[in-house]
């Protein structure tokens, strides 16, 4: 390399400028990514009545207020229940469907795969509105049941995507081996396939749960007046006035999300499945 001495300086400057520019933008972007989370947690500890920044003083009063915020608690219970049902149904139907389509070379399987994933790109609001039209046309009033159905449709793609990916990575010889050793189909599924695809199912189920818990566009149309959902309750609170209780609740949700994320990273390798 010493032979191209004159060029060395230029290359060093070039290398330096490239690394400095890319690293600087990347760090700025990472700050931008984290800043909102940090700011919410910061202002949630304010002792004042507004979301003024910086807070006039610090206290835990708004976290204490959460014990009395029955509207938010009620909405949270509804959201958790609907998300649990939607996730359960998504896993049951989605895993079964993934098994059917993952290794099938037929056109039907390809069409079904695209169909099951299509709610991911379709505007959820248009789907929510169309579901409301459908249920009102067949004379079914909106209820927690219609809510669970709508949420399942928008959650199931996450389960299908992750389960199909795990099945595609599975070595089929393992099933041949288990079969030639005398295992039946059901036994082979339980003892070979399921353990291998379980992390994929868990990662998909986790994302499906979060998607349902966070959904607004479908809930807006498919909930009945008595079923208040947490993201809608928070959204409406924020449209009206900037409530500090919402900041405290956001703090709780952020901490719960980080905890769940770390658990899922450990048991299901979450980040590997998303890249």
């Amino acid at each position: 390399m010493s032979k191209i001495n004159p060029g060395d300086r230029r290359i060093d400057l070039d290398a330096l400028s490239f690394r400095v520019v890319m690293t600087a933008i990347a760090l700025a972007a990472l700050v931008l990514l984290v800043a909102p989370t940090v700011v919410v947690i910061w202002v949630s500890f304010t002792s004042g009545y507004s979301l003024k920044f910086p807070p006039p003083g610090y206290s835990l009063r708004w976290y204490g207020e959460l014990w009395n915020a029955w509207q938010l608690q009620f909405a949270m219970m509804n959201s958790l229940k609907v998300a649990a049902w939607a996730t359960g149904l998504s896993i049951l139907l989605g895993v079964s469907a993934s098994l059917g389509i993952a290794r099938s070379p037929t056109l039907t399987a390809k069409v079904l795969d695209s169909l099951f994933l299509s709610p991911l790109v379709l505007p959820a609001l248009a789907f929510g509105l169309s579901s409301l039209m459908f249920f009102s046309m067949i004379g079914v009033p909106v209820s927690p049941l219609t809510l669970v159905i709508g949420h399942t449709v928008v959650s199931v793609p996450f389960v299908v995507r992750n389960t199909v990916a795990s099945l595609a990575q599975m070595n089929p010889s393992l099933l041949e081996a288990s079969s030639s050793l005398g295992a039946g189909r059901w036994y082979g599924f339980r003892r070979v396939t399921l353990p291998l695809i379980r992390p994929g199912i868990m990662a998909g189920g986790f994302i499906a749960f979060m998607a349902s818990f966070d959904n607004v566009p479908v809930s807006l149309f498919l909930r009945d007046a008595a079923t208040d959902m947490l993201p809608i309750r928070m959204w409406q609170d924020l449209e009206g006035r900037l409530d500090v209780t919402v900041a405290a609740l956001s703090g709780v949700l952020i901490v719960a999300t980080i905890a769940l994320m770390l658990v899922m990273e450990r048991v299901a390798g979450l980040s590997k499945r998303l890249t």
Binding site: T37, D214, P231, L253
Partner: peptide, 11 residues
């Protein structure tokens, strides 16, 4: 990943 999984309303 954190912003991806945090509630949109919170973000």
């Amino acid at each position: 990943l954190l912003p991806l999984l945090t509630s949109v309303v919170v973000r």
